[in-house]
Computed example of a mutant assay.
Amino acid sequence: MSDPANESEREAKARRGRNIALALGLLLFVVLVFLVTIVRLGANVLDRPL
């Protein structure tokens, strides 16, 4: 592993880009799980007894 204190500007930019890509991927996954949950629960809400 590289030492963040001794990395070049190019390495820092690459690391920042990877971190942003990971954050966007994680956010997309969370939104996808949320939407799937809402869709699955939405169908059951309409079928409940009165």
Rank of each mutant, 00 (worst) to 15 (best):
G25A: 06
T37P: 00
A12G: 06
N19G: 12
L41H: 09
I20E: 08
L24T: 03
T37R: 10
V30I: 15
R18L: 10
A23Q: 06
I38E: 15
L27H: 02
T37H: 07
I20M: 10
V39W: 09
E9Y: 08
L41F: 13
A21R: 15
A21L: 07
F34W: 13
F34E: 03
L35A: 09
A21I: 01
R16N: 12
V30M: 11
I20H: 10
K13H: 08
L35N: 01
G17I: 05
V33G: 02
L28Q: 04
L35T: 01
T37D: 03
T37K: 09
R10I: 15
L32D: 00
A14W: 06
L35P: 00
G17V: 05
K13S: 12
L26D: 04
R40I: 14
N19H: 09
I20V: 14
G17C: 05
E9G: 10
L22C: 03
L24K: 01
F29V: 15
G25S: 05
N19K: 12
E11I: 07
L22W: 07
R40L: 15
E11T: 09
V31P: 03
V30W: 01
G25D: 01
E11M: 10
E9V: 00
A23T: 05
E11D: 10
A14V: 08
L35F: 13
R18A: 12
L28N: 01
R18H: 05
V30F: 05
A14Y: 04
R40H: 09
S8K: 07
A14C: 02
L24E: 06
L24G: 01
V39H: 06
A12P: 00
A12L: 13
R40P: 03
V33H: 04
T37F: 15
K13C: 07
N19E: 14
V30T: 14
F34P: 00
L41P: 03
G25Y: 04
S8D: 13
R16Y: 13
S8F: 05
R40G: 04
K13V: 12
L35D: 01
R15L: 10
F29G: 08
L24I: 12
V36Q: 00
A12Q: 11
R10H: 11
I38M: 14
V31R: 07
K13Y: 08
R40N: 12
V39M: 10
A23K: 04
N19T: 11
E9R: 11
L35H: 02
